[in-house]
Design a protein around this nucleic acid. Sequence first.
RNA 1: GCCCUCUUAGCUCAGUAGGAUAGAGCACAUGAUUCCUAAUCAUGGGGCCACAGGUUCAAAUCCUGUAGAGGGCACCA
Length: 565
Amino acid sequence: MIEEILLKALKAIGIEADYVEVVVPKHESLGDVSTPAAMLYAKKLKKNPSVIADSIITAINAPDVFDTIEKAGAGFINFRFKLSYLYGQLLKLYTEGSGYLRPNIGKGQKIQIEFVSANPTGPLHLGHGRGAALGAAVANLLSAAGYCVEREFYVNDAGRQVRLLGESVFARYKEITGTPYNFPEDGYRGDYVDELARDTHAAYGDKFSQSEFAVASEFFIAYAYKQMLEEIKNDLADFGVEFDRWQSEKELFTDGTITKTIEKFRDKGLIYEQDMDNICEKNRKYGNFKESIIEKGVAVWFKATELGDEKDRVLMKSDGQYTYFASDIAYHVLKLNRGFDGLINVWGADHHGYIPRIRAVIKAAGHDENKLTVLLVQMVMLLRGGVPVQMSKRAGEYVTLRDVVKEVGKDITRFIFLTRRPDSQLEFDMEAVKQDSPDNPVYYIQYAYARINSVFEKAEKRQISLSFDNTTDLSGLSSPEELSLIKKLIFYPAAFQTAVRTRQPHMITFYLQELAGLFHPFYYKHRILDEEAQLTRARLMLCACVKIVIGEGLSILGVSAPDKM
RNA sequence: GCCCUCUUAGCUCAGUAGGAUAGAGCACAUGAUUCCUAAUCAUGGGGCCACAGGUUCAAAUCCUGUAGAGGGCACCA
């Protein structure tokens, strides 16, 4: 709104721009909003910022909006709103609700967001939880912004990892039946593996006791990963995270998507065969070549270097097996072919080296590489009272997402993940989180919501109407606390837009903390119900708006908004 | 060896289109409730924005280098 007024003014003095910076000054004494636009264009126009500021000010035509417009500092233009404008906006927020709070940025564009996508070889850990919280929040955010969002979980149900899981369960099963079997070297050792083996034995008895793994593998692999997948689905559901689609990797093999994709790339001249002798030389230069792993033969390669990656990548090994990357190519091309305008992948930061090759794939498929956004999620350090919790995935000893949610709760867990930038490492101290629990920022926000609700209940008992319209007289809202609250509220759409543009929901989190931080002092200093009727009604409407905005923000974060606490 | 990310108050972290005097929570200290929920409020101390250069009217923010932390560099998944 303010931005549009300024853009119009800029245009009037001959500056074409599609963005102008509008900020809330650090000190309220400077103004309600401010723009450094004049300084920005000073160089371009070769004029003094002060002169430009003057001409912008004269060009601004918004007598209903601003009370004062002042030039200040090195060329800032500071604005102060008219009370009538603030009241008008508040009424708009109240009557339009999400129409006001959710500017339509996406305009129906189709976005697909793939997240979590954990191997179905064990329970989710806390890192997955961070990815889940972020992915779900970004999906909510974009969906609120008018994008058509699909949430997908890519199931790695093919390949070595699920095979290892199956074999691990098989080995434990054999143990139970008294026919020892060498436990696979990199096998999964968690309690859940033993449990799966016991379940199998309970259901099928000694049926497989004499089988070789080669014979029984299909059953054990499918049985084990399907059970794990169910568990993952349950964990996610309990964490409040839902998906629209579960894409099986295995299906990409069986329905021919992979071979078709590779042939398409071959037609474009992006595929070649090469035997390993050439590669040995190349790889030696990197100094990380492990000869022992490689077998003699011809492999199928993707010319990733032509599309910006630093190395070409193998799609089919010389032993005839597809690499993981082959199915990943097929998967991303499939996603693009399904007609999305944008793809978002939420990945663990340890996969960042993977980005260039996937971008190469997108270019190879004839799409703009910017269609892909990768959100990297850094690791979570789990602490207990300042001491790192030792985890060994190998030994199957680690604290699961389920454990943490059970101990500290879903709302706190999700909120903490969304209070940090995704790409910074996060310390999650279970003791600290619980100890602080009464003072936890989540509760601070939720409490504001619950308090309002409680006032509303009292109001209803006293037969005070809780519906408001343009006849509601807001002129009683004049204290600093009230005006700050109104300004904060009507800035929600701006905060929302930044969060959408950067795909970073933590901006909503911080906004909510600030909003609650204005509400509580207001509540403390001013009575709502025992005032003269008109003022009570005005304050109730202000509270209604706070409630609407907090409810809106929390729903994007996936945190509950309780009526009572 | 090469590449990526991070380093802001005692602690955990914001500061994301370079803007005015550097922000919050926790912790610490002092105080507030006959009244709509004290899971609240008020006041206070606390900083070489890792370090060194550079670009700019303006740098925590952009560029280069150094140090520290994490991660990545297979015909692994």
